[in-house]
Design a binder for these strands. Structure first.
Lengths: 115, 115
DNA sequence: AACATATATATGATATTTCGTATATTAAAA
DNA sequence: TTTTAATATACGAAATATCATATATATGTT
């Protein structure tokens, strides 16, 4: 048994901000998203999105991977299983909360961002 | 389908403070606890515990019931099922985080508080 | 009625979080 | 090598959360 990579408290602190919670849910549902996708989906400024993604990265909930000009974020597969299940439950039971952002995301995919 | 009694964001905001998260986990595990049990288990001041319980009550995660001089708190059974499962997963996968408080609680039960 | 006990709330001080703006970094393109 | 595009970070201001202390309320006891 290794020590868990994050405490329950820091995990839930990460989920306690609107931007972080929505970004995390969208990344969970889509497997991976680049920053520009999230800027469009959430209709927020670039620094605001980057700052919150950095929070999620620093507590190891998200991994980042640069590919060319773009940085892609995905859920860290090493998350404790209980935390992964929490993300699963939340993502699949908060449609109303995510609705418009998923719509934005689908529209974004037809446009030119990170093509 | 009725509207959910709480948004995912306000749910997670409630879990994002050490006192609230621990109190909620203990109440979940014990079914119900009175305020004096929590003061002992968490080793915190009475106003601090009451204030955080009030937060959990106001967003309808907890119910309160007065019996004589004591007020007992329990998890609201009307919580959305996904949220209830989140509590279940968290309570049963954060032993290290709750350990000493459960010890305190068991010691408290042998003493005179709310007997 | 006066008192004691358990709990709740008000208040102002302090700490923490979030934000907008400006700037830095990195990689590709020209 | 200059420029452009995508992303990250620094910094001070503003908003929000938390706290300790004092006080209020509610119940039971004498």
């Amino acid at each position: 048994m290794s020590t868990p990579i994050l405490s329950p408290l820091s995990f839930y602190k990460c989920l306690s901000d609107d931007t972080r919670l929505k970004a995390l849910m969208l990344i969970y549902l889509e497997k991976e998203l680049c920053v520009c996708d999230l800027i469009t989906a959430l209709e927020l400024s670039q620094p605001k999105v980057s700052r919150h993604l950095a929070d999620l990265r620093k507590c190891q909930i998200l991994l980042d991977e640069r590919r060319g000009k773009w940085v892609y974020y995905s859920v860290n597969p090493k998350l404790p299983e209980w935390a992964m299940k929490v993300l699963e439950l939340t993502a699949h039971n908060t449609e109303a909360y995510l609705n418009e952002h998923i719509t934005n995301l689908n529209m974004a995919k037809q446009s030119e961002c990170c093509s």
